[in-house]
Amino acid sequence: MQFTSTPRGARLARRLVSHRLNDWGHPYTSPANETLTLIAAELTANAVRHAPVPGRDFHLRVTRTAPDTYCIEVTDTRTERLPAPAPAPSSAHPDAESGRGLLLVSALADTWGCTPRANAPGKTIWATYTVAP
């Protein structure tokens, strides 16, 4: 789905992920739903905060790649702002409200990465997560 590059767009994207996972059999308060929703929240927040281009939206895709494995993909149109392959420990103040998003994604997801957007400017940040049986 496509969302506006605004805090409201990020919030709606996060809610969509939670609803979709609930529909796929992972209730709202389950660890799988909460973990994948948090991963989506961090990736969409980064798209809104660090990669907005006026008039251009971000895209979110949630897929089930295997019976218990899910992939969250967030695509934006900003090519020059790429994340570090392995985020360094945050130098943010312990009370800071930002600066730890990719550290959380790295800690929660099985794998994550960044790929160039096909046939258009931008990039896709993706993360996979396998639900424990």
Rank of each mutant, 00 (worst) to 15 (best):
A120K: 01
R15E: 11
A41S: 13
T29D: 14
A86P: 02
R56W: 00
V17Y: 13
L43K: 05
E34W: 01
R100V: 14
A109C: 05
P116A: 05
P94T: 07
E42T: 03
F58R: 04
G9W: 09
A41T: 12
L38S: 13
T4L: 10
G113I: 02
G25N: 07
Y28P: 02
A66L: 09
R64M: 08
V17G: 08
T37H: 12
W126C: 06
H26T: 05
S106H: 06
Y70W: 11
A51Q: 15
T115N: 04
P54D: 15
G113N: 03
R100D: 04
L43Y: 01
V53W: 02
Y129F: 12
G9T: 01
D23A: 08
L103T: 00
P54M: 15
A96N: 11
T44K: 04
Y70M: 12
G55Y: 14
S18Q: 11
V105Q: 06
G101C: 08
P133H: 04
L104T: 11
G9H: 04
A10P: 00
R56N: 03
R64V: 01
W24H: 07
A109G: 04
P27S: 04
R64I: 09
T75A: 13
W112G: 05
W24M: 08
C114S: 14
L43C: 04
E97V: 13
M1Q: 05
T4Q: 07
A107D: 06
A86L: 07
A107K: 08
V53Q: 15
G25D: 11
